[in-house]
Write a protein that binds this DNA or RNA. Structure first.
Length: 564
RNA sequence: CGGGGUGUAGCGCAGCUUGGUAGCGCACUCGCUUUGGGAGCGAGGGGCCGUCGGUUCGAAUCCGGCCACCCCGACCA
């Protein structure tokens, strides 16, 4: 490719409102343009990178025996109704109707559709099957942000496995997990595999692949011993509390100005870890008390996962007052019998605690959880914070900001049952195949590479995904320079190297900064000055290292760099 | 959905307080010079000032509605 013929609209200044590094650089370097919030046009350079990412993923999918499909992105409502997700998913799914007024959806994932195809599986001998595709997904995100990191329309590599039994699913799951590690290693993404919540996908087990970056939105708890989990799932080992004997019964005391945990700490000397924080949630229309230790934060996803709830929201003050007779600040679970009460494990067995009395401006001390509060269910609901002891090795935990680039699920038989997929087993019985599903966000992976591969001058692509591996900077309009540059260009193309010849009538500084901004791994600089002594320069983008080499051996020198 | 902010040329911005019909830098076009780190000089082209309405002799500017986009939070496979 000749740069003079490419469309690469680089920007000299940082675009306004592009906060994330990858967003800023992809805009500046002419890879993407925004159409509307959450929808981006990929320009030629981005298309080249995307194609290389897809090739790497495809290669690793083939290596585990997966077969490529391409399923429709517009889908009928009825399969979603059969799986129950038409109602369960809510406004994140784009829905539309056709001229016959039939309900349709834009695919946000393809479990239902792949399972529909699987209805033709007949025999256990057909299994296992591992199927995948690269397909556009649509998700009506409430808040798209950070360029390609959170969008409403994107390409996903999604795969689905069908096995006869859970051992088979374990093998398919492990095959994908290993393939994903290889994919991310080849893409240059420092992915961490973490335990995750399965969310709306359902299923028994899931692992997320997370890339650490400031632009990330997921918090991951991580330990040197190898323990890693999304905060939505993470636990830590808290030291046991040593409570005193407490009181024979809870004792009210007036706290007229205390509305928060901190108020009680400051004005009444009750440390936060001796308080019971009473949160009121509406869980699938049921008002529910959620008790946490005063210094602990609730993870709503844990609440959702524990109950299997569809919708969870904090209750409004009016709802709370109507049910408990007090406002937030003086709430507690003592004596409450008409509402479900969930309590965090960290409160189990605690005595001599302080909590609200359900009378505004009054608290109770000497509360014994087992004796005084009708806890219906104990669960891990607490958010782990940095420095708490690792649940495995007891060393202090790290907390990282990350972006999710892949997620693999053991789904079970939910979809195959709902859509009536069965095969005949060896003994003549009908069995329902068990499924897994596995996803990688392609453009998000692209953004994650930029997040982790850049410097102050621009992007620094790993060679495996770079839009071009070599750029030839032809300086000046000297005929000999042009001839030498053209010669190198032809030679590299003959060797199937992705090379771009910067033959623009631009000054050297413009060429250098564009080539660096765009992030091409190697640059050959051809100039009259160099040719006078028979040499060209080869510069490595990542290190800035430049070596002079005779024109005739430039290609050989590059090959050595590729091999290194 | 709650809070905050911004919409003026392709990009980045000023002008708005104090109304009088739009400006700067970059980019773009042409000419000359220049050519190893985003060139210089000269001459040009380009904007329904997001949109609809109101006030006014007159609105980019004042008032109201709407729309879009960005940030924080909620939410989110």
């Amino acid at each position: 490719m000749r740069w003079s013929e490419m469309y690469v609209p680089t920007l000299r200044q940082d675009p306004a409102g592009a906060d994330a590094v990858s967003h800023r650089l992809l805009l500046r370097a002419g890879y993407i343009r925004q159409l509307m919030a959450g929808h981006y046009s990929l320009l030629p350079l981005a298309v080249r990178v995307r194609a290389k990412i897809i090739d790497i993923i495809r290669d690793e999918m083939s290596a585990i025996g997966a077969q490529e499909f391409l399923l429709p992105t517009m889908q009928p409502a009825d399969v979603w109704q059969k799986s129950g997700r038409w109602d369960k998913i809510g406004s994140e799914m784009f829905r539309l109707t056709d001229r016959k007024d039939a309900d349709l959806a834009l695919g946000m994932t393809h479990e239902e559709i792949f399972t529909t195809v699987a209805q033709e599986l007949r025999s256990y001998r057909d299994l296992p099957q591992r199927w995948y595709q690269f397909q556009t997904k649509f998700r009506d995100e409430p808040r798209p942000k950070s360029g390609l990191i959170r969008v409403r329309e994107f390409t996903m590599k999604d795969s689905y496995s069908f096995d006869t039994d859970s051992d088979g699913l374990d093998r398919s799951f492990a095959a994908h997990r290993d393939a994903y590690h290889r994919v991310f290693a080849r893409l240059g993404i420092p992915a961490i595999a973490v335990e995750a919540s399965s969310g709306i996908m359902g299923g028994s087990d899931s692992t997320e692949f997370m890339c650490p970056t400031d632009a990330g939105e997921d918090i991951v708890v991580h330990c040197a011993c190898g323990y890693a989990a999304n905060v939505e799932k993470a636990t830590s080992h808290l030291p046991a509390a040593a409570d005193g004997a407490g009181l024979a019964a809870p004792e009210p005391f007036d706290t007229p100005d205390a509305r928060t945990i901190e108020d009680l700490v400051r004005d009444y000397g009750v440390t936060a870890d001796r308080q019971v924080k009473t949160l009121v949630y509406v869980v699938d229309h049921q008002l529910t008390l959620v008790l946490m230790r005063g210094d602990h934060a609730l993870v709503e996803q844990k609440l959702i996962d524990t109950i299997g709830a569809v919708e969870v929201r904090p209750a409004h003050p009016e709802e709370i007052r109507a049910a408990l007779g007090a406002l937030p600040g003086s709430l507690g679970g003592v004596g409450v019998t008409d509402l479900p009460i969930l309590a965090d494990e960290a409160l189990r067995g605690r005595r001599d605690m302080t909590t609200g009395a359900n009378r505004d401006g009054v608290h109770l001390r000497g509360v014994d959880l087992d004796r005084d509060i009708a806890v219906g269910r104990w669960a891990d609901l607490r958010e782990v914070v940095a420095g708490e002891p690792c649940p495995r090795c007891r060393q202090p935990l790290d907390v990282l900001r990350t972006v999710e680039i892949g997620h693999i699920f053991k789904l079970g038989r939910r979809y195959t049952e709902a859509l009536g997929v069965t095969v005949l087993a060896a003994d003549g019985e009908r069995i329902t195949p068990i499924m897994g599903s596995y996803g990688i966000g392609v453009e998000r992976a692209l953004a994650a590479i930029v997040e982790t591969h850049h410097d102050e001058r621009g992007i620094v692509w790993p060679a495996a995904v770079a839009p071009f591996v070599v750029a030839i900077a032809q300086l000046g309009n000297d005929e000999q320079v042009a001839a030498a540059a053209e010669g190198l260009y032809a030679e590299l193309r003959a060797r199937r190297v992705d090379v771009v010849l910067d033959d623009r009538a631009e000054r050297p500084g413009v060429k250098f900064s564009d080539i660096e901004l765009v992030g091409i791994p190697y640059r050959i600089t051809v100039s009259a000055r160099g040719l006078a002594e028979g040499t060209v320069e080869v510069t490595t983008r990542a290190t800035g290292e430049t070596t002079r080499t005779p024109l005739a051996s430039a290609v050989t020198h590059l090959s050595e760099l590729f091999a290194a």
